[in-house]
Computed example of a mutant assay.
Amino acid sequence: MVEVKNIFCIGRNYANHALELGNAIPTSPILFSKPTHALVKADGSQINFPGDRGEIHHELEIVIHIGKEVNEEFEVEDVVDQIALGIDFTLRDEQSKLKEKGHPWLKAKGFQNSAIITDFWKFPGVSALEEVDFSLLKNGEAVQVGNIKDMMFDFKQIIQECNYYFGLKKGDIIYTGTPEGVGPIQNGDTIQLMWNDDEKGNFKVQLD
């Protein structure tokens, strides 16, 4: 696995995902983070999740890896060297309660194994990514399908926002938002992360 220093995430970056959860469509990127110990590889093994904290929803995302420090003037291809597919798992019931109280989402977003990641591969450039759909298969059925053309905030805007507030460095990764189709996982589910027809990673769900 490549070096990972910080995990930053973008919320509600696909309009249809915001709408499916009854959330307002944001006018600027919604930023949050996960602890690095939440990161786990989709390498075909069984991954354990808490079974006593309500529904856990899968949120498939493209993950970008920052390969060098971001200056004021940059192009995406200058600073992103690799990409991967990932899943931002969310304890949805806990998140809803936290949102009602105006509390941070960390307990619902940062639990162990909540940041799934595939192997990284060379970043092909933004225009090349627009030609590829990414998808999540649950027990062989496609439940999420996305394309970066549907993002409200593109890679450059996301990088600028994260860099402004946090100062991006080499080794930071960004989960760039999830398309519609999020939903709960069940014990025994098999999850596949797909890049067009190419499987980039898979795992089996174990609820403890």
Rank of each mutant, 00 (worst) to 15 (best):
T178L: 01
V4F: 00
M151C: 01
M194D: 09
K149V: 13
T178V: 12
V132C: 05
E69D: 13
F153D: 04
D172I: 12
Q144P: 07
G183A: 05
E94Q: 09
I185V: 13
F49I: 05
I191G: 11
T178N: 07
K41R: 12
P26M: 12
Q160D: 11
I117V: 08
V132E: 01
V79T: 05
Y164A: 12
K101E: 12
F134W: 08
H65K: 09
V143S: 13
G177Y: 11
E100I: 08
A142H: 07
V79H: 06
T190A: 11
N6G: 11
G67C: 06
F8A: 08
V182I: 15
K34V: 01
V79N: 09
S96L: 06
C162E: 10
G51V: 05
D150L: 05
N147K: 04
L193N: 03
S28Y: 11
F32I: 12
Y14S: 00
N23I: 10
I117S: 01
I30T: 14
N196V: 04
L193A: 09
L60Y: 02
A108H: 02
G181K: 08
K156E: 15
G201E: 10
V80W: 05
P179R: 00
I10H: 04
N23T: 11
L19V: 11
W195H: 13
I87A: 04
Q206G: 12
P29C: 01
M194Q: 14
L168Y: 05
N13F: 08
G44M: 03
E61D: 10
F203M: 00
K68R: 12
V63M: 09
F32K: 08
Q112G: 01
L106T: 14
S114R: 02
E59W: 13
D197H: 09
L21G: 15
A108C: 01
Y14C: 00
I64D: 07
E180W: 13
G167V: 06
I158T: 12
P124R: 10
T118E: 01
A115E: 03
Q112Y: 09
I173T: 00
E69G: 03
Q95F: 10
Y14T: 01
